[in-house]
Design a protein around this nucleic acid. Structure first.
Lengths: 228, 228
DNA sequence: ATCACATCTGAGGGAGATCTGAGCATCACG
DNA sequence: CGTGATGCTCAGATCTCCCTCAGATGTGAT
């Protein structure tokens, strides 16, 4: 699995990289928030997890985490010397998946990396070998984030795509609103507005298949399974 | 979101339940590993997360975690006084999603609960194939919320479905009216009107099997078990 | 800095779902 | 068979939830 290590101290990074590599990770090293964000392109960067040190030279680590969250759904483990509860809560609420305080035990860090990545069903179980989901006239390519209807490419925004991809993973299954929000937005934020509806609406409009996404009143949404 | 709290100390449980409830969780309390496992039915137990105390009276907490893992995909957060690294690693490697050491900060626990549930793809890898309840001619699919009678799909509203799903979880067992109301309506509101009857009636009508739901005078309702 | 575009928020409206109340049917029991 | 209690039916009234639209805010690129 590929792992992005964001750490400004070269010595620390080298040592940790070695350990991680020994445990089967393919490590990419970024020395600053800027570098990290460049590596994390929205279109399939392929990273399974990000280890984010908060003490960065160029920008605030929390900000970087927020930006990562807006850009990709890749899980983030914050690694930092800031041990106080306030910082931890702040970090977790920004969308971090775990928060590890320095100095940490390497074994525990590994266990936590595994725990986090275990949960991240990137594409394996659903797509198996195929990297594209087919739903009637709709074709969804996960790695390139391309969607086409009847062969015509449809340009979707990030959220629109994430939303569609989530629903498409299990056609017919009803996803609850809160579930969708937490999966697609990936940040603890009490969804108050009409945000979700708006995105659903624009998705329906762009796909020109209003019936594809079905509203389940009082519960959430689902993709109607194609007529076999 | 529903949350299963596994904790043998009633005082601790009560206090924590209160906090969690205030933050929008619907808490179910289990006092032992046995109770916990009973609550976690493979088909749609509906829990978003399990808080598992390791100091249980009846069995080893680690074992319980393993069993939960085998049974459902529900995320588990271990909560325990055992702070040593070895225990942590052990717990995480058993499939726990997070490991929180007592005494903990309530705010951090909440943040971690959110972080875990946020990253969870709600599914049951175990029951991946089929997870439908079958009762004679009636077929109830929890994840898709689809109900069919003799192969014909029946369109149910939210309450109708929830009601049917509740009764169907234990065919033959009589559910008391208050019990049904508190489960389906999720608010201990003194049901004064004919609300429940109306929904039962519309369910019976839609399923076209008036006999399926049996009225138990003075008590409540039950689903008649299929004729074996 | 400016622009284009993505995302979010709020108000208004409408379709269904849900609830209520009155009267009717049915059951248990003497 | 009469009687009270309990559950059922029916038809509005109400309320919840979702959709649309239009503009505000934020973000990234030029």
């Amino acid at each position: 699995m590929r792992l992005l290590l964001v750490e400004d101290d070269n010595h620390v990074a080298a040592a940790l990289s070695a350990v991680l590599a020994r445990h089967g990770f393919q490590v990419t090293h970024a020395r600053s928030g800027e570098e990290a964000l460049q590596a994390l392109v929205p279109e399939g960067d392929g990273f399974g997890v990000v280890l984010l040190d908060l003490g960065l030279p160029d920008q605030d680590g929390y900000e970087v985490c927020g930006k990562i969250r807006k850009r990709t759904g890749t899980p983030v483990i914050m690694v930092t010397a800031r041990a106080d509860v306030r910082s931890r809560i702040h970090g977790l609420n920004l969308g971090a998946d775990d928060y590890v305080v320095k100095p940490y035990d390497t074994g525990e860090l590994l266990a936590r990396i595994h725990a986090v990545s275990r949960r991240t069903v990137h594409e394996d179980p659903v797509t198996g070998g195929e990297s594209a989901l087919l739903l009637g006239p709709v074709r969804i390519e996960l790695p390139t984030r391309q969607v086409s209807v009847d062969g015509a490419v449809v340009q979707l925004t990030r959220k629109e795509f994430d939303l569609l991809a989530l629903l498409a993973q299990r056609p017919g299954v009803v996803f609850r609103r809160e579930q969708i929000i937490s999966e697609v937005w990936r940040t603890s934020w009490e969804g108050t507005g009409r945000t979700l509806e708006v995105h659903v609406a624009s998705l329906r409009a762009k796909l020109r298949l209003p019936a594809l996404i079905e509203t389940v009143r009082g519960v959430g949404y689902r993709l109607v399974a194609p007529a076999a």
